[in-house]
Nucleic acid binder design. Sequence first.
DNA 1: CCCACTTCTTGAACATGTTCAAAACTTGGT
DNA 2: ACCAAGTTTTGAACATGTTCAAGAAGTGGG
Lengths: 231, 231
Amino acid sequence: MLAVPDPANRSPKAELTRQAIVDAALRLFRAGGYDRTTMRAIADEAGVSAGNAYYYFGSKEHLVQAFYDQMQVEHARAAEVALAGTQAFADRLRGVFLAWVEVAAPYHEFAGKFFKNAAEPTSPLSPFSPESAPARDASIEIFRRVLDGSDLRLSPALRREMPELLWLLHMGVVLFWVHDRSPGQARTRVLVDRAVPLVDKLARLTRLPVVRGVVNDLVDLMSSLRAEGAS
Amino acid sequence: MLAVPDPANRSPKAELTRQAIVDAALRLFRAGGYDRTTMRAIADEAGVSAGNAYYYFGSKEHLVQAFYDQMQVEHARAAEVALAGTQAFADRLRGVFLAWVEVAAPYHEFAGKFFKNAAEPTSPLSPFSPESAPARDASIEIFRRVLDGSDLRLSPALRREMPELLWLLHMGVVLFWVHDRSPGQARTRVLVDRAVPLVDKLARLTRLPVVRGVVNDLVDLMSSLRAEGAS
DNA sequence: CCCACTTCTTGAACATGTTCAAAACTTGGT
DNA sequence: ACCAAGTTTTGAACATGTTCAAGAAGTGGG
């Protein structure tokens, strides 16, 4: 695995080649799936040699990061639209979840292959890896915005952890979606439609004194895990 | 990927060869990790040809199912010990979770490679796949036993779903564990120690009238998703 | 014992991700 | 214009999971 050139000092020419490879890869992935798309085919399509692709991308998996980044950006945009003009927390959350399902739909067939690689802890593609931190943070940011414009009132401590909790829930939805073989991922939509009101209710219950204790424990747990190192 | 012979009609000789391959594989995986263990090395170690290994196992990944099965059995045994003589739900749950961490510890270094495959929906190794149903059911059964001998009282509906919910939580712990690089997986143990009392409290709260509604919604959601097809 | 049939085993060939030494090209300094 | 130092590109070679046609070994019926 060669050292990939520093993004900072890349010549415009090289930048172009790099982009051509990404474009070719995404085109072929989408057309024929991940496994059936060979590095040689990608290189051909991009008009470079196979070896050259490895000058820019350390491995075939690294090409997938481009896919992630693109999808994250699309989701952020779609989420923005969904959030405009809604106040109710439940509506906002549902909007953001469904926006993702919408954006991801074209890739459903081969997304599994991607997430397979993503599940490996040592892989830079893992959603928990340092390499994914920018995309992950951007995604968590979306959920912060869900809260920011909503009518939901939470204790300050919970409020602080809530974006990350919602992101985790989002990961759960993604996992379900990946395994969802129903046409148009209908089951995932059902899951979202039914889970969102539940989360809404639960979030509002946290204001009850009896429930407070559990919530505080949860918040403590999260910050204590964070304190011991990133995971 | 060749058709693997039906388990029913396997000659004793073949059964022996098959077992030799599994043993060799697990020995080498454990010694050198998954990636660095080649199929040729496994075949050599087992005293057969590389091609022959493919007569018994459709792919390298299929060898991993043997690993799962073995670990599941070990966990069941260790859980039994942990459960003996404890009544408190929290103690029982913690015992079962920690038993798993104990049993899985020797494999931590390369377990990630295994779970990578498990995350792919089309893979028979996915914990949600039909092929994994026996191991999954056996695992859920362990959590049913956690409840059976405990002092925890739940509504009948929740009680029915609870084993599966605990199994899902267990999957969460596993995911955390896979990503946990702390020595001896200390962070996972912290997670268990702190999450268990939280679950305990939460479970007991479900008897409160206010919380009942949310719980019923959750139970409904789970059974409605189950109704539409297996995932 | 021999024949057909199934089960098992082999080794060579194949596909594809990846590496690497060498060559081509760029660039900045003189 | 030329050189040295970097950067980019190449094509062949390599490693390893997997396939496959061929044959060996076992099995039951006559």
